[in-house]
Computed example of a mutant assay.
Amino acid sequence: MSAQEATYLPLGDGDDHQLARVANFLGAFRAKKGEEPEPQYFLSGPNPSDHVPLPRQLHEILVQSVEALHSGKAVTIRPNEMQVTTQQAADILGVSRPTVIRLIESGQLDAERITRHRRLRLTDVLHYRDKKREEQLDFIASTSQHWDEEPSSEDFNRVRHAVAERKRKKQTG
């Protein structure tokens, strides 16, 4: 089986009960255990001895897929090369392609030029995304008195706008 992009739609009404059983199991497991112990995950075959351990990352992909499908969302699996285009980097970072170009030109992201196209290492893009997320969390924590829950996407949007406004003021002031 080759790695190809595929989108999976929520199951039909006949199969929805199977997806609900998996989602209910996952919810009950989290509720019962609180903090999850270091679990082991397996892909099993028809016989009890036919199984192979799954890495935690693959398990997390499956859990996210089940939760999305159960809530009526489609799931797309798209293999990425170790190098990405500026558009793919923009999609990963949640910004526009011109913003990625500016990040490259300002030296915040490394890129390699292949003919007239730029390619970025996927690990660099993911590292930049994680670094920015940490900076946003630090900013949120420093501007709030009490933070008891995980920041929401609205919190991140407010931080992005506040940082952008500060940059605009520095440039004009």
Rank of each mutant, 00 (worst) to 15 (best):
M1Q: 03
M1N: 02
M1R: 02
A3V: 09
A3H: 12
E5K: 10
T7C: 13
P10Y: 06
L11G: 15
G12C: 13
D15N: 07
D15G: 06
D16W: 11
H17K: 08
H17W: 04
Q18A: 01
A20R: 13
R21D: 07
F25N: 03
A28Y: 10
A28G: 15
R30Q: 15
R30W: 10
K33R: 14
E35M: 08
E36W: 00
P37K: 01
E38G: 01
Q40F: 06
Y41E: 02
F42V: 06
F42N: 01
F42C: 03
L43W: 14
S44H: 14
N47F: 12
N47C: 11
S49F: 10
S49L: 10
P53N: 01
L54P: 04
L54A: 04
P55R: 01
R56V: 13
R56G: 04
R56Y: 13
R56Q: 14
L58Q: 07
V63I: 08
S65Q: 13
E67I: 00
L69G: 09
H70K: 01
K73S: 05
K73R: 09
A74H: 05
I77T: 15
I77N: 13
P79N: 00
N80G: 00
E81F: 03
M82N: 06
Q83F: 13
V84E: 11
V84W: 08
T86K: 11
T86G: 12
Q87L: 10
Q87K: 11
I92P: 00
G94L: 05
V95R: 03
V95E: 02
S96Q: 10
S96T: 14
T99L: 13
V100P: 05
R102H: 11
L103W: 07
L103P: 06
L109I: 05
L109W: 05
L109P: 05
D110W: 12
E112W: 09
R113K: 15
I114W: 14
T115R: 09
R116A: 11
R119F: 10
L120A: 04
R121W: 03
L122F: 03
L122W: 04
D124E: 14
V125F: 00
L126M: 12
R129P: 06
D130P: 00
D130W: 00
E135T: 01
I140P: 05
I140E: 03
S142E: 10
S142F: 01
T143M: 11
S144L: 15
S144Y: 10
Q145C: 11
W147H: 06
W147Q: 11
D148R: 12
D155P: 05
R158A: 04
H161T: 09
A162L: 06
A162N: 04
V163R: 09
A164L: 09
E165G: 06
K167D: 10
K167V: 08
R168A: 15
R168V: 12
K169S: 15
K169A: 15
K170G: 02
K170V: 04
Q171P: 00
Q171D: 02
